Measured scan of single mutants.
Amino acid sequence: PVYLSVKADNSMFIGNDPVTDETMITALNALTEGKKDTTIFFRADKTVDYETLMKVMDTLHQAGYLKIGLVG
């Protein structure tokens, strides 16, 4: 499974590897070998604001990742 996490300080990680807004999709493409039907499990600290969550989800959708599971 692929886990994308947003921490309380808005830092992002794919698994244990830090990513930025600019590198997130490139890292996901490498990890999933470009398979856009891969489910991305998205988790965020409860203090992360809604705007940040939606920005990340919008970026995922624009890149073609449509299977996003929200996890606690």
Score class of each variant (00 low, 15 high):
residue 26 T to H: 13
residue 54 M to E: 07
residue 15 G to Q: 07
residue 15 G to N: 15
residue 65 Y to Q: 00
residue 16 N to R: 10
residue 52 T to E: 04
residue 55 K to V: 05
residue 3 Y to L: 09
residue 52 T to S: 06
residue 7 K to T: 11
residue 70 L to N: 06
residue 21 D to T: 15
residue 56 V to P: 00
residue 43 R to M: 14
residue 51 E to W: 12
residue 44 A to L: 10
residue 64 G to T: 00
residue 1 P to H: 14
residue 3 Y to S: 04
residue 43 R to W: 15
residue 32 T to I: 04
residue 4 L to C: 03
residue 45 D to Y: 05
residue 20 T to R: 04
residue 26 T to S: 14
residue 21 D to W: 15
residue 50 Y to Q: 12
residue 47 T to G: 15
residue 10 N to I: 04
residue 43 R to Y: 15
residue 72 G to W: 06
residue 7 K to R: 11
residue 51 E to D: 10
residue 31 L to N: 03
residue 21 D to R: 14
residue 66 L to P: 03
residue 23 T to H: 06
residue 36 K to V: 07
residue 54 M to D: 05
residue 39 T to H: 12
residue 23 T to R: 04
residue 31 L to W: 08
residue 32 T to Q: 02
residue 60 L to E: 00
residue 46 K to Q: 11
residue 24 M to G: 00
residue 60 L to Y: 01
residue 39 T to K: 12
residue 61 H to T: 11
residue 21 D to I: 15
residue 11 S to R: 13
residue 37 D to P: 03
residue 49 D to E: 12
residue 18 P to I: 10
residue 26 T to A: 14
residue 64 G to W: 01
residue 27 A to H: 14
residue 50 Y to K: 12
residue 24 M to E: 00
residue 55 K to C: 05
residue 51 E to K: 13
residue 49 D to M: 10
residue 35 K to S: 07
residue 62 Q to K: 14
residue 31 L to C: 06
residue 19 V to L: 03
residue 63 A to Y: 07
residue 58 D to P: 01
residue 38 T to R: 08
residue 51 E to H: 12
residue 58 D to M: 13
residue 46 K to D: 12
residue 68 I to G: 03
residue 44 A to V: 14
residue 35 K to V: 07
residue 44 A to D: 02
residue 21 D to M: 15
residue 24 M to I: 12
residue 55 K to S: 07
residue 62 Q to R: 14
residue 16 N to H: 11
residue 60 L to F: 03
residue 15 G to V: 03
residue 71 V to L: 13
residue 65 Y to D: 00
residue 65 Y to A: 00
residue 18 P to Y: 08
residue 72 G to A: 11
residue 34 G to E: 05
residue 35 K to P: 02
residue 58 D to V: 12
residue 23 T to A: 06
residue 15 G to E: 06
residue 64 G to N: 02
residue 14 I to L: 14
residue 17 D to I: 15
residue 46 K to P: 15
residue 22 E to L: 10
residue 29 N to C: 05
residue 50 Y to W: 13
residue 13 F to S: 05
residue 22 E to V: 10
residue 33 E to C: 11
residue 26 T to E: 14
residue 48 V to C: 06
residue 71 V to N: 08
residue 8 A to G: 11
residue 31 L to F: 08
residue 10 N to T: 07
residue 29 N to P: 01
residue 63 A to W: 05
residue 48 V to E: 02
residue 27 A to Y: 14
residue 64 G to R: 02
residue 47 T to I: 06
residue 59 T to H: 09
residue 59 T to S: 10
residue 42 F to P: 00
residue 47 T to E: 15
residue 13 F to P: 00
residue 22 E to A: 12
residue 13 F to K: 05
residue 50 Y to M: 13
residue 6 V to K: 02
residue 46 K to I: 10
residue 29 N to R: 06
residue 67 K to E: 06
residue 67 K to S: 11
residue 65 Y to R: 00
residue 12 M to K: 05
residue 38 T to W: 05
residue 17 D to P: 01
residue 60 L to W: 01
residue 53 L to P: 00
residue 57 M to A: 05
residue 71 V to T: 08
residue 37 D to Q: 07
residue 57 M to D: 01
residue 17 D to T: 14
residue 59 T to I: 15
residue 44 A to R: 04
residue 66 L to C: 11
residue 30 A to N: 11
residue 44 A to E: 02
residue 70 L to P: 05
residue 18 P to M: 11
residue 18 P to T: 05
residue 3 Y to K: 03
residue 56 V to W: 07
residue 28 L to G: 00
residue 23 T to W: 03
residue 39 T to I: 15
residue 26 T to G: 12
residue 71 V to E: 10
residue 15 G to P: 01
residue 9 D to K: 08
residue 65 Y to C: 01
residue 35 K to E: 06
residue 4 L to N: 00
residue 42 F to H: 00
residue 17 D to Q: 14
residue 47 T to S: 14
residue 29 N to T: 08
residue 48 V to T: 07
residue 25 I to V: 10
residue 49 D to H: 11
residue 31 L to A: 12
residue 2 V to T: 02
residue 29 N to Y: 08
residue 21 D to K: 13
residue 21 D to V: 15
residue 51 E to T: 11
residue 25 I to N: 02
residue 45 D to G: 05
residue 7 K to F: 14
residue 33 E to N: 14
residue 13 F to N: 03
residue 1 P to W: 11
residue 24 M to T: 01
residue 63 A to F: 06
residue 35 K to R: 13
residue 18 P to R: 13
residue 70 L to A: 06
residue 69 G to W: 15
residue 58 D to H: 14
residue 58 D to N: 14
residue 33 E to W: 07
residue 43 R to A: 12
residue 35 K to Q: 09
residue 65 Y to P: 00
residue 27 A to F: 13
residue 30 A to H: 10
residue 23 T to K: 05
residue 38 T to G: 04
residue 47 T to Y: 12
residue 20 T to W: 03
residue 71 V to Q: 09
residue 51 E to Y: 11
residue 55 K to H: 10
residue 67 K to Q: 10
residue 36 K to D: 03
residue 13 F to C: 08
residue 56 V to I: 15
residue 59 T to C: 08
residue 52 T to C: 06
residue 48 V to G: 03
residue 43 R to Q: 13
residue 65 Y to T: 01
residue 24 M to C: 03
residue 37 D to A: 07
residue 47 T to N: 14
residue 41 F to Q: 05
residue 60 L to G: 00
residue 34 G to S: 06
residue 16 N to P: 08
residue 19 V to K: 01
residue 55 K to P: 02
residue 36 K to C: 04
residue 53 L to Q: 05
residue 42 F to Y: 03
residue 10 N to Q: 10
residue 46 K to R: 10
residue 37 D to M: 07
residue 31 L to E: 03
residue 2 V to S: 01
residue 40 I to S: 00
residue 47 T to A: 13
residue 5 S to G: 03
residue 53 L to F: 10
residue 45 D to F: 04
residue 37 D to W: 06
residue 62 Q to S: 11
residue 56 V to L: 14
residue 37 D to H: 07
residue 40 I to F: 01
residue 27 A to R: 13
residue 39 T to W: 15
residue 19 V to W: 02
residue 1 P to K: 10
residue 36 K to W: 05
residue 3 Y to H: 08
residue 61 H to D: 03
residue 56 V to F: 06
residue 5 S to D: 12
residue 56 V to T: 05
residue 66 L to G: 06
residue 34 G to A: 04
residue 14 I to G: 01
residue 72 G to K: 10
residue 53 L to N: 02
residue 48 V to M: 05
residue 61 H to E: 07
residue 15 G to M: 08
residue 60 L to V: 05
residue 60 L to I: 06
residue 58 D to I: 12
residue 33 E to R: 14
residue 40 I to C: 01
residue 54 M to F: 09
residue 8 A to Y: 09
residue 63 A to H: 09
residue 2 V to I: 14
residue 9 D to M: 05
residue 34 G to K: 04
residue 36 K to I: 05
residue 2 V to Y: 04
residue 50 Y to T: 10
residue 49 D to G: 13
residue 5 S to P: 01
residue 48 V to Y: 03
residue 26 T to P: 13
residue 20 T to A: 04
residue 12 M to P: 01
residue 63 A to D: 04
residue 65 Y to E: 00
residue 59 T to G: 05
residue 45 D to E: 10
residue 28 L to W: 01
residue 57 M to E: 02
residue 23 T to P: 01
residue 62 Q to D: 10
residue 24 M to A: 02
residue 31 L to I: 10
residue 36 K to L: 10
residue 16 N to W: 06
residue 27 A to K: 14
residue 1 P to N: 09
residue 12 M to L: 11
residue 24 M to Y: 06
residue 10 N to P: 01
residue 69 G to S: 15
residue 34 G to N: 09
residue 59 T to W: 09
residue 40 I to D: 00
residue 56 V to Y: 08
residue 72 G to Q: 12
residue 60 L to M: 03
residue 16 N to K: 10
residue 25 I to C: 03
residue 24 M to N: 00
residue 32 T to N: 03
residue 21 D to E: 15
residue 71 V to F: 08
residue 26 T to F: 11
residue 28 L to E: 00
residue 17 D to S: 12
residue 11 S to F: 07
residue 54 M to S: 09
residue 66 L to N: 11
residue 29 N to L: 09
residue 48 V to L: 09
residue 50 Y to S: 09
residue 25 I to A: 04
residue 28 L to K: 00
residue 4 L to R: 00
residue 61 H to S: 09
residue 19 V to F: 03
residue 20 T to Q: 04
residue 47 T to H: 13
residue 66 L to T: 14
residue 41 F to K: 04
residue 63 A to Q: 04
residue 42 F to R: 00
residue 70 L to Y: 11
residue 50 Y to C: 15
residue 7 K to W: 11
residue 14 I to E: 00
residue 61 H to W: 11
residue 66 L to M: 13
residue 52 T to Q: 09
residue 69 G to R: 15
residue 14 I to F: 06
residue 28 L to F: 02
residue 25 I to P: 02
residue 52 T to L: 13
residue 37 D to L: 05
residue 36 K to R: 11
residue 1 P to I: 11
residue 49 D to F: 06
residue 37 D to Y: 06
